[in-house]
Amino acid sequence: MARESSPALEVEDLTVAYSEQPVLWDIDLVVPTGDTMAIVGPNGAGKSTLIKAAMGLIPAVAGEVRVFGRPFAKGRGEIAYVPQRASLEWDFPTDVLDVVTMGTYGSLGWFRRPGAGERDRARAALEEVAMGAFERRPIAQLSGGQQQRVLLARALVQQAPILMLDEPFQGVDAPTERAIVAVLDRLSDEGKTVVVVHHDLQTVPEYFDSVLLLNVRAIDAGPVAEVFTEENLRLTFGGRVGVLAQIAAAESGG
């Protein structure tokens, strides 16, 4: 299958289980090239697991992932990953520029050092997230929003056609949220594919083209207007959905 005609990401029958307890059941997902997709669902629904399993960071019991039509093992270099910032030890002795430069390590071999070229790319990425002035700041002194932007810059520097972000908007301040959204917009304009685990239902219609509703299995996936309905939200989150239903109704109606 030619690369151009294949969707950016295809997940087929992906199942992940811990001691025979399924965390993800038989997930099928197609992410078209250039799409900006949100993954939403309740806690424990497997959202982070989906991203990590798709990236090969945790083993899957069944299923496969294809990147631009090629098996994942060949296509892994096309995906850049932004983990949850809480999963990192921020007291590490290094500065912002250094962390972003780590994003270039994938393209360097085993024994090569990052040079001026790599650092310039890192600087450019920092400018994009409005952190250019913080190059030399030790990361232990960063606020939550700044940490998030640094991780985003680290992924940007990889210049991959696909980005996967795990809860990037969680607990960040307004300027950071604006910066991230600006980056997402730019990426979308450039035809890049972005998949985001997102926790805030209210902003889904505003920030994303399509959405995957996930609760251990895929409830539904597709363009926001079609899929982000009250019915689907109820199936995903269970029970009465209240305010969210109004948003969803407004979205699908409008």
């Binding site: 059941w25 309740p42 424990g44 629904a45 251990v216 269970g238």
Partner: peptide
């Protein structure tokens, strides 16, 4: 049953 059991 298998899938309904989980959270939804």
């Amino acid at each position: 049953d298998a899938v309904i059991g989980f959270g939804a």
